[in-house]
Amino acid sequence: MEKVNLGNSGIKSAPIIFGGNVFGWTLDEKESFKMLDELFELGFTTIDTADVYSRWADGVPHGTSERIIGKWIKTRKIRDKVTLITKGGSCLQPGGPKNNSRDYLTGAAKDSLLRLQTDYIDLYFTHYDDKETPVEEALEAYQSFISSGEIKHIGASNFSAERLQKSLSIAAEKDLPPYEVFQPEYNLMVRDKFEGETEEICSKNQLGVVPYFSLASGFLTGKYRKKEDFEGKDRKIFTEKFLNPRGEKILKSLDQISEKHQVSQAGIALAWLMKRPGVSAPIASATKSSHLKSFIEAIEVNLSQEDMQVLNKASETQD
Score class of each variant (00 low, 15 high):
185 E>Q: 09
121 I>E: 09
136 E>L: 06
81 K>Y: 13
210 V>K: 07
136 E>G: 02
187 N>S: 15
4 V>C: 11
294 S>R: 03
36 L>E: 13
316 E>S: 06
256 Q>F: 03
5 N>T: 00
149 G>R: 05
8 N>K: 15
154 I>F: 05
49 T>G: 04
67 R>Q: 10
115 R>A: 03
130 D>M: 03
169 S>A: 03
117 Q>G: 07
123 L>C: 10
149 G>S: 10
135 V>W: 01
260 K>N: 08
232 G>D: 10
232 G>I: 09
254 L>S: 07
134 P>T: 00
27 L>R: 06
75 T>I: 14
314 A>Q: 03
59 G>T: 00
272 W>M: 01
140 E>R: 15
293 K>I: 13
213 F>W: 06
185 E>M: 07
149 G>I: 00
173 E>K: 09
117 Q>R: 14
284 A>H: 01
37 D>V: 02
107 G>K: 11
93 Q>P: 02
213 F>E: 13
258 S>W: 12
105 L>T: 05
209 V>W: 15
291 H>L: 02
86 T>R: 02
4 V>L: 14
68 I>R: 08
15 P>L: 11
230 F>N: 00
216 A>W: 10
200 E>C: 05
164 L>V: 05
197 E>Q: 12
216 A>E: 11
76 R>E: 14
83 T>N: 14
253 S>R: 02
32 S>T: 00
192 D>S: 13
58 D>S: 14
243 L>E: 06
88 G>M: 09
90 S>R: 11
47 I>K: 07
66 E>W: 04
173 E>G: 01
162 E>Q: 06
128 Y>D: 03
88 G>I: 14
186 Y>I: 01
75 T>S: 10
55 R>I: 09
276 R>W: 00
126 T>G: 09
158 N>Y: 02
12 K>S: 04
228 E>Y: 01
26 T>R: 10
17 I>L: 11
192 D>W: 04
226 K>H: 11
212 Y>N: 11
308 M>Q: 04
47 I>E: 11
51 D>Y: 00
318 Q>W: 08
190 V>R: 04
50 A>Q: 10
123 L>R: 15
218 G>T: 15
237 I>G: 01
128 Y>R: 12
52 V>P: 03
240 E>M: 08
92 L>M: 15
193 K>E: 13
319 D>H: 07
137 E>F: 00
209 V>Q: 14
129 D>H: 14
82 V>S: 14
163 R>L: 10
209 V>D: 12
95 G>F: 12
7 G>R: 02
279 V>L: 09
33 F>T: 15
55 R>C: 04
207 L>C: 04
135 V>Q: 04
283 I>C: 06
13 S>C: 05
262 Q>V: 00
31 E>Y: 10
307 D>E: 09
306 E>W: 04
298 A>V: 01
186 Y>A: 00
127 H>C: 05
7 G>Y: 06
32 S>Q: 12
148 S>R: 04
123 L>A: 10
120 Y>C: 11
55 R>P: 03
285 S>Y: 02
39 L>K: 08
50 A>F: 01
255 D>C: 01
318 Q>D: 06
246 R>A: 06
38 E>K: 15
302 N>W: 03
183 Q>L: 13
259 E>A: 14
167 S>P: 03
258 S>N: 13
154 I>A: 06
97 P>I: 12
